[in-house]
């Protein structure tokens, strides 16, 4: 689970990749060519970003004729969306602040 999360976080930590991913979320199935148009980056760069998103399980590809179509993998973010994961992070953060507070209470 942790490894999957790290892959997802890494994949989405890049603004260009996040833009591509958000566009696929918004517009649905797209080809590399369509994704490149108006993106401000080259087609090989878009392909590379898509490869990273694919390895993180965030997008799927589907060849159709000479084009490859990309779409979001709808269950990809499920590992991050898990309530227990979110709450655990929340409480760990709170406990950090609690520790800070306890130190300050000594003074």
């Amino acid at each position: 689970m942790q490894q999957t999360q790290d892959l997802i976080f890494k994949a989405l930590s890049d603004p260009s990749r996040r833009a591509i991913f958000e566009r696929l979320c918004r517009d649905g199935d797209q080809t590399v060519r369509v994704l490149t148009a108006g993106s401000g980056i080259s087609q090989p760069a878009v392909s590379k970003h898509l490869g990273i998103l694919k390895r993180a399980g965030l997008v799927r590809d589907r060849p159709e004729g000479r084009q490859t179509h990309y779409s979001v993998a709808l269950d990809a973010l499920a590992p991050l969306d898990d309530w227990t994961v979110r709450m655990k992070r929340f409480w760990q953060g709170r406990f950090d602040d609690l520790d800070d507070l306890l130190r300050r209470m000594d003074q």
Partner: peptide, 30 residues
């Protein structure tokens, strides 16, 4: 679903209790 977070603090229980039960202190960390 259950989430468990455990941590050892280098402070006595009485002090932890204050941080958990006094509103102005709860506000500081929660």
């Amino acid at each position: 679903r259950t989430v468990v977070v455990e941590r050892d603090f280098a402070h006595p229980p009485e002090k932890l209790w204050r941080a958990l039960s006094e509103p102005h202190l709860i506000a500081e960390w929660l």
